[in-house]
């Protein structure tokens, strides 16, 4: 169908597209609404993890029992998206395909090593989220590809996690910096949002480390990833500083949970 209409654009939840249309800067002639396609709103869970259709809403990910149980970090991150009205509409496929650098779910999906199923007339392929965000608002999706599922591996038992989002102006604003931390085994996985043109990922082995050593290691491993874009929310300098604060807070918090577990 996409090939039969002029200048088409896929329409999921519409929360990003509507804004661009209202601002008069999106010029698509036809919208292809995914809402009517069956099977895109399903969440399934098995021993390996979760599989969520692209039209599952952010609210769905936040509240679904299986998501909460199998990948609580993902559920937590989706809970931080905008507000309930937006979460009830925003689709997780669209959220990924938008490829924006400051959305809330990508850092969590990076830490969790999620994969994206992309489908076109040529077939379906699987893309690791860690290779999905190519450049500023650019993803690895081909123009004719559609996100048809997101797979999230189950968080290992005994793992600990934190999602920290910091807005520098109004509390409900876009994040000025966000971080998802997952400590599984002794491996620390860190997903960063809003701190570079794309969501970024880093990890390190924390075997034998104290909490302070883990914090130091985390700050070291994220340093080369920071490339914040200055805007009304803060300068490069301030955003770098914030990155250090939230990464420290998140790692320390998760570490504490680990100790208490």
């Amino acid at each position: 169908m996409m090939s039969t209409v002029d200048n088409p654009m896929v329409y999921g939840g519409g929360t990003a597209i509507q804004i661009l249309i209202k601002q008069g800067i999106l010029f698509a002639d036809n919208f292809v609404d995914l809402a009517g396609i069956p099977g895109l709103t399903e969440i399934t869970a098995d021993a390996a993890g979760l599989r969520a259709g692209p039209m599952v809403t952010a609210r769905g990910m936040e509240t679904d029992d299986r998501v909460r149980r199998v990948a609580p970090l993902a559920s937590t991150a989706y809970r931080h998206v905008a507000n309930p009205r937006v979460r009830n509409t925003a689709s997780i496929g669209g959220n990924l395909a938008h490829g924006d650098y400051r959305l809330d779910p990508p850092p969590a999906l990076l830490a969790l090593d999620a994969t994206v199923e992309a489908t076109s007339v040529r077939g379906t392929r699987s893309l690791p989220v860690r290779q999905f965000f190519v450049d500023f608002q650019q993803t690895a999706l081909a123009p004719d590809e559609l996100v048809t599922a997101v797979r999230i591996p189950a968080q290992p038992t005994g793992s600990a996690y934190r999602f920290v989002k910091y807005s520098s102006l109004s509390a409900n604003d876009w994040p000025c910096a966000s971080v998802a931390v997952l400590i599984a085994g002794r491996e620390v996985h860190i997903g960063l949002g809003a701190l570079a043109p794309v969501p970024r990922y880093a990890s390190f082995d924390a075997t034998g480390m104290t909490d302070q050593a883990a914090v130091d290691a985390a700050l070291e491993v994220i340093a080369p990833l920071l490339d914040p874009i200055p805007d009304v929310r803060g300068s490069v300098r301030y955003k770098r500083r914030l990155a250090q604060v939230i990464v420290e807070d998140a790692v320390r918090g998760a570490w504490k949970d680990l100790d208490n577990a």
Binding site: I19, A171, D173, V232
Partner: peptide, 16 residues
């Protein structure tokens, strides 16, 4: 005017 949209213009929310 660089922040003349509700995406960028900051207003107190219930959480502020």
């Amino acid at each position: 005017l660089v922040n003349g949209t509700l995406l960028d213009y900051q207003l107190p929310s219930i959480r502020d």
